[in-house]
Nucleic acid binder design. Structure first.
Lengths: 138, 138
DNA sequence: ATATCAAAGACTCTTATTGTCTTTAATTAA
DNA sequence: TTAATTAAAGACAATAAGAGTCTTTGATAT
């Protein structure tokens, strides 16, 4: 049970974008460099974030990505959901077992975690020192 | 991000074992039937539960499985950890990024969920009606 | 018109999970 | 002591999901 690498990259990229000066855009090339990813791969992740209305994109020269909403309106959960989708972390495997109590307990725990991550804003950690990106750019 | 089928089967099997009369044993054959699994596959799951000291096994005729501890000493988390192991649900992918704040937030959320699942006892749901096993045994 | 950039889709590679089959070892009962 | 029963272990195959690349298309600015 693990969050995908894509979610990991997405969270780091969103921090990068939040730290960007207001109204500035940045291209995939630069974003990818910080995490040492191939631009085409990160591109797919950015497209998901765009479709989730977390960021905006403009093609062409001087194009790139920027936030699509206020930074205090972007939670960990928003980013995670944009990448992972809406699937539950537990689905009862037993056939014809509506109202499975095991599933109910698991879903409650899931809901609480999601709630907690909904309250955690990315901007709060973006502001802190020590969250420098791209540890070992060569 | 999803718990494995094995965890799913393990939880349901543990409920079966909890509902068993005191000091009774039950073999894989019967346990597997309730979930329509192959005995050899469920066997591997049961071995993990045994190694985690949640259940005991005795080979040979009249052998089988039974609880290894009091039913009020078996939590959802115990079973999950026995199957999934101790891995974290988020590991920062950025190189040379000790003390990643994203990771910290994610790990806190994880810890809270695990804590919650540690407080949830399987016996509490095993006792309730409606948690009948094997919905569509043919 | 050309350079720059995002979006989309086809495609491959790798890894983890899922599941089966076979063999070995332990226990009971006859 | 032999036969039946059962768990444990390991090799193996099948599947699915995730990770990642490459190529083409379409939009934008200069």
């Amino acid at each position: 049970m693990k969050y995908s690498n894509a979610t990991n990259y997405a969270l780091h990229t969103m921090v990068q974008l939040i730290r960007l000066p207001r109204d500035a855009s940045i291209g995939v090339q630069e974003l990818a460099k910080a995490q040492q990813l191939s631009p085409t791969y990160l591109s797919k992740i950015l497209t998901k974030l765009t479709k989730a209305n977390l960021i905006e994109s403009t093609p062409g020269a001087k194009g790139g990505y920027r936030l699509a909403r206020g930074e205090r309106d972007i939670s960990f959960f928003d980013v995670i959901q944009a990448i992972e989708g809406e699937s539950h972390l537990f689905d009862c495997t037993l056939h014809r077992h509506e109202g499975c109590l095991i599933e109910k307990v698991m879903r409650d725990a899931e809901a609480n975690m999601k709630q907690e991550l909904q309250e955690q804003l990315l901007v709060d950690i973006a502001e802190q020192a020590g969250q420098q990106q791209g540890g070992d750019v060569k």
